[in-house]
């Protein structure tokens, strides 16, 4: 009998304590943001899809030497690149760098292995498309467009 009333008392008290907590939270400011209108600052270390970065000394050019290290090391086999020999140019010239972003796991292996540090992560996080092919990015075109 004593337990019976004790349970009513403690139980009722715990319910009221719980309700007081939610009441307090009710009057505190919201913590979420209305996403497309407000955006939170992105961390500078965020990993978006990879991009070719431009050379600091010669800003019109990217640094890729078409060594194919990234293509070989990529665990997801999502890089497809090609270089060709051109008259009067030392080394290889990159003619194609396609990234299949549907498969990329953003592991960073390609960025790490690249001998001339030609790759970096972008800060793009909004990817929308109607088909898989929309996510096959042409990094070479991107870096050239960007000029």
């Amino acid at each position: 009998m004593k337990d019976y009333f004790a349970l009513i008392f403690t139980g009722g008290k715990s319910l009221i304590v719980g309700m007081m907590i939610t009441l307090r939270e009710l009057f505190r400011p919201v913590v979420t943001v209305q996403y497309p209108r407000e955006k939170l600052p992105l961390s500078p270390n965020y990993r978006g899809h990879t991009i070719l970065i431009r050379d600091e000394e010669k800003p019109e050019k990217h640094r890729c030497i078409s060594c194919k290290m990234c293509e070989r090391e990529c665990p997801s086999n999502c890089i497809d690149l090609a270089g060709e020999k051109r008259e009067g140019v030392k080394g290889m010239v990159l003619i194609k760098y396609r990234l299949d972003f549907t498969k990329c796991s953003l592991c960073g292996t390609c960025v790490e292995v690249c001998p001339p540090n030609a790759l970096d992560f972008s800060k793009v996080y909004q990817h929308v498309g109607f088909s898989r092919e929309d996510f096959h990015y042409d990094l070479l075109a991107m870096v050239e467009e960007d000029k």
């Binding site: 939270e25 009710l26 919201v30 913590v31 979420t32 209305q34």
Partner: peptide, 14 residues
């Protein structure tokens, strides 16, 4: 709306 505010969200806003 109140569910949102209890959970520190704004609730319907649009």
């Amino acid at each position: 709306k109140l569910a949102g505010r209890f959970q520190r969200r704004p609730g319907p806003m649009e």
